[in-house]
C-alpha cells in the first residue's frame, strides 16, 4: 500500500497512545521515516505488520483496528493537504461513493504502482445504497467498512451498514442511512 496509509496509522497511534508508542512500534518493526513516504508504494506485508502491531498496542483485534483505522482515515485525509480533493470528490454520501473510482483514477495517475480498489453503486435510492467493493487484495473488508462508516460521519448521516454478500474478490455492502439534519 502507499505510504500515506502508514503515515495515517502513525498519526492514529500518536493520537491514541502518544509518540513513544509509535517509536516503540517503529523500533520493533525496524522501520523509520523512509517507510512513511506518501507517494511510495510499499509491500502489503509491511502495511499488515504495522496494522497488526498497532492493533496490539491499541488493545484491539486486527479486524477492529482496521475498522477504526478506516474511520480515522477519512478524518485524516479530510484535515490534511488532501482536503480539497475530498471536497471535490462529492458533496454527499451517494455522490462521493459514486465518484470514488474517478478519485482513484487520479490517484492511479499520481501513483502508477498503487493497486486500487473499485467501487460500484448497484442501488442508489434516497437513504439506501448498495455498494460493491472489488479488490485484488483480501482481508480489507473491515477497513472498507470503517471507511464507509467514516464517510457517513463526514456527511453527518447515521444508519447501518451490512454485508449483503461476499466473494473471493468482492464484498457487497448495504447502506441504509438518514441525514442527521
Amino acid at each position: 500500500m502507499y505510504g500515506m496509509i502508514h503515515r495515517a496509522m502513525r498519526n492514529m497511534v500518536h493520537e491514541e497512545l502518544g509518540e513513544d508508542a509509535w517509536l516503540a512500534l517503529e523500533q520493533k518493526l525496524k522501520i523509520g521515516p523512509m517507510d512513511l513516504l506518501t507517494g511510495k508504494v510499499y509491500g502489503d506485508a509491511l502495511t499488515l505488520g504495522i496494522i497488526t502491531e498497532a492493533a496490539d498496542r491499541l488493545n484491539l483485534a486486527v479486524d477492529q483496528c482496521l475498522i477504526e483505522f478506516g474511520r480515522y482515515w477519512i478524518r485524516y485525509v479530510d484535515q490534511g493537504s488532501l482536503a480539497s480533493v475530498m471536497n471535490f470528490t462529492g458533496q454527499d454520501l451517494a455522490s462521493f461513493i459514486k465518484n470514488l473510482d474517478r478519485l482513484h483514477l487520479a490517484v492511479g495517475a499520481a501513483m502508477p504502482d498503487a493497486r486500487l480498489p473499485a467501487f460500484s453503486t448497484l442501488c442508489n435510492d434516497p437513504g439506501h445504497l448498495v455498494v460493491e467493493y472489488r479488490s485484488e487484495r483480501v482481508g480489507l473488508e473491515p477497513f472498507v467498512l470503517g471507511l464507509l462508516q467514516g464517510l457517513m460521519e463526514r456527511f453527518h448521516a447515521r444508519g447501518d451498514i451490512e454485508v449483503l454478500s461476499r466473494g473471493e474478490k468482492f464484498v457487497i455492502f448495504d447502506i441504509r442511512y438518514q441525514d442527521r439534519d
Partner: peptide, 13 residues
C-alpha cells in the same frame, strides 16, 4: 486532481 495529489505528496515529503 493530479496536481492536488502531487502537492499533498510534496508537502508530506
Amino acid at each position: 486532481m493530479l496536481i492536488a495529489l502531487q502537492r499533498a505528496m510534496l508537502e508530506e515529503s
